[in-house]
C-alpha cells in the first residue's frame, strides 16, 4: 500500500466553510475593516469573496486528538 498523501478531510468541510464565512460576515457587519478591494455592499458577499481569496484571518481547530482516527484504510 502506498502512503496516502492527502489525509481526509483535506479541505474545509462545508460546515467549517459556513462557520468561517458566517463569523467573518458578522465582524464586517459590526464595522471591522474589509481586507480586500471590492464594490460589494452586503457583508456576507464580502465575507464570501474574502474566503475565496483566502484572506480571512480565521481558521478552525480540529479535535483530531479526541477521536480514534482510522489509519488502517484496509478496514474500509
Amino acid at each position: 500500500m502506498i502512503a496516502i498523501k492527502v489525509k481526509f478531510p483535506f479541505e474545509y468541510t462545508r460546515f467549517e466553510k459556513a462557520r468561517i464565512i458566517g463569523a467573518r460576515a458578522l465582524q464586517i457587519a459590526m464595522g471591522a475593516p474589509v481586507l480586500i478591494e471590492t464594490d460589494k455592499v452586503d457583508p456576507l458577499d464580502i465575507a464570501m469573496e474574502e474566503f475565496k481569496r483566502g484572506v480571512i484571518p480565521i481558521t478552525v481547530r480540529r479535535r483530531r486528538n479526541e477521536f480514534v482516527w482510522l489509519e488502517r484504510y484496509d478496514l474500509f
Binding site: G22, G54, P57, I58, R61
Partner: peptide
Amino acid sequence: LGTGDVELVLKLGGRK
C-alpha cells in the same frame, strides 16, 4: 453537529 461542531481560531499571517 454540523456548524455547531466547528471551533474557530485566529489565523495569523494575514494577506497574501
